[in-house]
Write a protein that binds this DNA or RNA. Structure first.
Length: 655
RNA sequence: GCGCGGGUAGCUCAGUUGGAUAGAGCGUUGGCCUCCGAAGCCAAAGGCCGCGGGUUCGACUCCCGCCUCGCGCACCA
């Protein structure tokens, strides 16, 4: 018996009992089973609310009473071989599966199919998923890390559930921010290389960027204190924006409610910054000149740009490799940023867009239920951010003919994607509904958001290194050194690295993507409780038992009926849930559901290490029980390894 | 001002789309290593599910109002 035949047997029995009570058109597909609360008897529950009024053999009163329906159904189901117990509890019928049949189905399937257990049949659904999207002016931080692990895990979940998945990454490698790093390099760093500096390329270029910001801030500060700066501030005070800011402060003084507005000078300072950069700043002019030379294809600038970008991208690839992440295709903004202009032109002719008096091209947002309008081409004819997104989405359709295009980005871009999808729907009604924004919340620190100016940005590479260091410390201080006896230094480090990555990935995936999450550097690096390390340890424990038993996998057959205890049954039920857990996580694009599933499985398993009297495995004197338990342990290992793999987590045989 | 998303145990978070006595981890308290891995196991304490109304046999979940926190509303990306 397989899980499939077992489950259909269950459904058939239920459906036929319901038909027998008078609901003639009731089929297997109508059966809805729900979980049973912790302390109630039974493995699954059949809720009777939905059957009200449908069982014609019951009298008028009983027919509408879920409690009476449940009693009648329980009677009809009693004695069926698939159930070893049937109980009516209020409006529910609680069903207990026949343990031997369950064990045969679950363990039989898992040991036969191994890591193909729970593979869904391949559907012809093509999914393109875009994630990571780094800028090439600085290394990736904790926010990118969350993006990376969510993107990778969702990709794996979708693959496992039968979709054809293409992973793409768009590298933002052009624009003003890149020129800032370049300028510092040109001025101060011409003979530095990642090799000579002993740094990853992305970190080296990131240093240039930080250096630029420092120089610019100093310059801006000097200007603010100059006569011209003071004059600009005075003008600001009497301007519309200044008066508005003044009023906001007065309103706050009266009510003392909400967040206090910034003081006038700070408001001026931040609102004037761009204007200063673009029209007054000497260093700003140098950057803008670089950008213009880049756009004109100046060979010298392009050569420097290429050198720096290559360094950064090499650094990114190192990080991706460490994380076990790969992409089928890298898109570079420097190659795609002109896409979309023709499409806009075309849409303009069709009346989807309109011209503004100053010659800019705009989209009327009321067409998609929003307010105002969105500029899609500047008055000088150049593109804005959304222009290339429109172009890339359509271009990519030519490449992949996707059924779904998923964008993984932080939730601050929710509005942007709403607008983008709306415009795409107008331009290409045939692609409507294929676009999806998988938006995740920010990662915050205990004292708020990461701020580069305050130096609180958590760097991905540093974080991994710090985590590995911490794991090594725990390993070195472990009392029980048995498991490191045969590990040389390289193996020791490899294990520490694997555990560190497992802990980080599990931590980041354990939150539902949509929610903001707090990252506490002290607590988050913990290895106790609901963590990646805990799951990894339980996998290692399964391997340890099987090693010591000199176990080799065979189809255990009839001995499985030796699995009888409630704890064993709970494990069987957990294992049977694996395919459904994958489906749920994949459909909801939510790896945290898989993380939760795996933790629960581990928890159901972990008790046997202290219940050595009640559940001996190696020392079990009954041969059949011993074989059956070994097979169960093997099956748990298969599911744990596969499930952790769906989170992008590698397992260890010993840790 | 408008739009979107949050407010659940001391803390960090789940809550399968309206169903049984609201869960987990951390933290706290107590108990477990002559015995298959103590990065562990077992147990206890701890909740007006932001507030007020409504719909329903039934609401943490749906609707309305309010309070509160955050994000967004560029010819930036």
């Amino acid at each position: 018996m397989t899980i499939q035949t077992f489950q259909s047997d269950v459904l058939q029995n239920i459906a036929s009992a319901i038909r027998g009570l008078g609901a003639a058109d009731y089929t297997e597909g109508d059966v809805v089973l729900s979980p049973v609360p912790e302390n109630a008897q039974g493995d699954v529950a059949l809720s009777c609310f939905g059957l009200r009024g449908r069982l014609s053999t019951l009298d008028d009163k009983a027919r509408h009473n879920p409690v009476a329906i449940s009693a009648a159904l329980a009677e009809a189901l009693a004695g069926k071989p698939v159930f070893e117990a049937v109980a009516a509890v209020g409006p529910y019928v609680n069903l207990s599966y026949d343990t031997a049949a369950l064990a045969q189905a679950v363990i039989g399937d898992i040991l036969e199919q191994g890591d193909h257990f729970a593979d869904a049949p391949v559907r012809d659904e093509r999914v393109v998923i875009e994630f990571s999207g780094p800028n090439t002016n600085k290394p990736q931080h904790l926010g990118h890390l969350r993006n990376n692990v969510i993107g990778e895990s969702v990709s794996r979940l979708l693959q496992k559930s039968g979709s054809r998945v293409t992973r793409v990454n768009i590298i933002n490698d052009r624009g003003i921010h890149i020129c800032k790093s370049m300028l510092v390099y040109i001025k101060h760093g011409q003979n530095i290389t990642p090799q000579s500096a002993g740094k990853k390329g992305d970190h080296l270029v990131g240093d240039f960027y930080v250096q630029f910001e420092k120089e610019f801030q100093a310059e801006y500060k000097t200007w603010l204190e100059s006569e011209a700066g003071k004059r600009a501030y005075e003008e600001f005070l009497t301007s519309e924006a200044g008066i508005k800011a003044q009023k906001a402060i007065e309103a706050y003084e009266l009510k003392k409610k909400g967040k206090a507005p910034a003081d006038l000078f700070s408001t001026f300072k931040s609102s004037y910054k761009d204007k200063y950069f673009n029209s007054l700043s000497p260093i700003g002019k140098e950057v803008t000149d670089l950008l213009i030379r880049w756009e004109n294809g100046d060979p010298e600038v392009r050569a420097i740009w290429k050198r720096l970008n290559d360094w950064v991208i090499e650094g990114f690839m190192d990080t991706y490799k460490t994380l076990g992440i790969s992409f089928d295709k890298l898109y570079f903004e420097s190659e795609t940023y002109k896409l979309g202009k023709d499409i806009i032109q075309n849409g303009l002719e069709k009346g989807i867009f309109h011209r503004l008096p100053d010659n800019a091209t705009a989209f009327d947002l009321s067409k998609i239920g929003l307010n105002g309008e969105k500029i899609v081409l500047r008055s000088n004819g150049t593109s804005v951010y959304i222009t290339q997104d429109i172009g890339t989405a359509i271009e990519r359709y030519k490449d992949y003919e996707y059924d779904k295009m998923i964008y993984v980005t932080a939730d601050e871009q929710n509005y942007h994607f709403q607008v983008l999808f709306g415009i795409l729907g107008e331009l290409r009604p045939d692609l409507g509904g294929r676009f999806e924004h998988l938006s995740y919340g920010m990662v915050t620190l205990p004292n708020g958001r990461m701020k580069s100016r305050e130096g609180t940005v958590v760097d991905t590479d540093d974080l991994i290194e710090e985590m590995a260091r911490l794991v090594r410390e725990v390993m070195e201080n472990k009392a029980d050194r048995e498991h490191y006896a045969d590990a040389d230094e390289a193996e020791f480090d490899r294990r520490a690295q694997t555990i560190a990555l497992a802990a980080l990935k599990y931590y980041l995936l354990n939150f539902t993507p949509a929610s903001w999450m707090e990252f506490n550097p002290e607590k988050s690096l913990d290895l106790q409780g609901r963590t990646g390390a805990y799951c990894l340890m339980n996998y290692a424990r399964t391997r340890s038992i099987l090693r010591k038993a000199s176990y080799t996998r065979t189809q255990p057959g009839d001995v499985l009926s030796a699995l009888k205890t409630p704890q064993e049954k709970k494990l069987l039920l957990n294992l049977m849930q694996f395919p459904a857990a994958i489906q749920w996580a994949a459909q909801n694009r939510d790896p945290s559901k898989m993380a939760e599933y795996l933790f629960n499985l581990c928890k159901s398993f972990a008790f046997i290490f202290t219940d050595k009297a009640g559940h001996p495995v190696l020392n079990c004197t009954d041969e059949a029980t011993r074989s059956a338990r070994l097979a169960l342990v093997d099956a748990i290992g298969v599911v744990l390894k596969d499930g952790l793999g769906l989170l992008g987590i590698d397992t260890l045989e010993e840790m």
